[in-house]
Design a protein around this nucleic acid. Sequence first.
RNA 1: GCGCCCUUAGCUCAGUUGGAUAGAGCAGCCGCCUUCUAAGCGGCAGGUCACUGGUUCGAAUCCAGUAGGGCGCGCCA
Length: 578
Amino acid sequence: MNLFSYFRTEIIAAVEKVAPGQDTSKVTAEPPREASHGDVATNAAMVLCKAVGAKPRDLADKIAAELRGHAAVTGVEVAGPGFINIRLADSFWIERLIDVLREGEAYGGSDLGKSHRVNVEYVSANPTGPMHIGHARGAVTGDALASLLAKVGYDVTREYYVNDAGAQVDVLARSVHLRYREALGEAIGEIPEGLYPGDYLKPAGAALAQLHGAKFKDAPEAEWLLEFRGHSVEAMLGMIRSDLAGLGVRHDVFVSERGLVEGGKVQAALEFLQAKGLIYEGVLEPPKGKLPDDWEPRPQTLFKATQFGDDVDRPLKKSDGSWTYFASDIAYHLDKYRRGFASMIDVWGADHGGYVKRMQAAVKAVSEGKGDLDVKLCQMVNLLKGGQPYKMSKRAGTFVTLADLVEAVGKDVVRFIMLTRKNDAHLDFDLDKVTEQSRDNPVFYVQYAHARCHSVMRHAVEIWPDWASIVQTPDPAVLQRLTDPAELGLIKQLAGWPRLVETAAEAHEPHRVAFYLYELAAGFHGLWNKGKDEARLRFLIEEDRDLSLARLALLQAVVLVISSGLAIFGVEPMKEMR
RNA sequence: GCGCCCUUAGCUCAGUUGGAUAGAGCAGCCGCCUUCUAAGCGGCAGGUCACUGGUUCGAAUCCAGUAGGGCGCGCCA
């Protein structure tokens, strides 16, 4: 239960009694910033006073009087310019603790999304080589966002768009042909400029040598290009899939750009736009600023992107007559829309920022205004070591593969750290810091809280071997023993989880989960240490079984919420950290 | 030149979609280990929310402009 949406409806009901028929859409129920103000605060009186024709504090007084009748409410105060602050009974919070225990890891989930279908497209790295660190952030962001949306009741499809139709796959095929000749015993020397130099192409070349022998060794390109292209793309995709698996990132669907092109989808999409009068032949203004050397005015096939909010109309055909990337991307998004996704989210690198408007324009056009595209741009990741910029210098260059990174610090660390910043902010990834065991390192700090809970639970088993099964069906009377402000404070944090999940999902901002978990961990560590100062606050007190059981229930709830938060991130909670 | 993103404590960053006295961590200072993991906890100090206007009961948040930083700017994907 999201207690804030629950109280919002209660507040609106109170408003209805005091001032019937008002537009209550701007009424909120939120946790006050200051804990001393109470548990739930509403702006109802302030947003409605004008329409009602009353002073905000007078209106607040009336609404407050209504709210005082609620069973869970122990106090209502009007404060400041007209806030209504509500205090809730301890028993109400105990009920929320029971919610957690009853719902387990499902706690925090909801039907907010009403099973609406959402397509989240992420990674979509070109199939020309292994994934590097820059791809990792988008991969993790998309994966976690998909999980987050699924948690609040959306029907989520995780998708990968394979760019296997552009000129870069021809380059790939030629690069692999070189490796093929190498596998056949030829000395290939330096890799020529313009071809991919990486060693990772050797297995693909060797496999083709195995398959075809020397058949294509000296053959003209036209004879082998198609075969080599297909085979190479498969090989690279295999590598990417294995990189993704190493990171624990999964997709439901892989869509091939080539498949769209060869299936006539691009043609069809453009005919659709043509029929709507959104395509024309025209000449674009030269780009401002630095002009490309070979720029010359030329009539082109253009899409009327300006009609949907873009700055200029965008070309659909290259000078050689083939489709631009944008053209097939239009077809791709139309395809998504026709597959039943009115709601689409694309996760891209920040260098594609200039592409957002035109793609959103295209989605509006192909869906006739019914579709919606949100693009999450992931900013750069700066890899550091001990605070200094770090380059893992591979022989051929300085790029850092994802596989290397995962090997160095582990997939869970990579995943969590990638989610500790909002997507549009730069992220420093310090190889030393992320494995450091200190409060400065959020992964460790959260994991440590989880492990500490389990540590107490292991001790508890020695005293009350059956505690876990007792706690599973908690007795409210026993849980009432939790009366210390620190204990109740922790329950309140736990009770805030459903709201946090909903707001993070609606904002498409998985990083909020990381900050919530960090704060929850802080709340737990604080309570733990209180037990060091005051023995009566220790979790386990042998001579008081009920109190210990109540506290174990609280720990159990902390464990459940931390693990369900980490589950959204695809991170395995640790039970021990020795 | 145009578009998008960013600017909050010495440093790294949150800020619940417009709420009350703007919060954490690190670094600094002061405390807390015979006790469930001190890998931790408590406290002190630290701010013109880049700047200037505007919108309204109320702005770090929305709008306009200015400054600084990043990304991008027909036939790359």
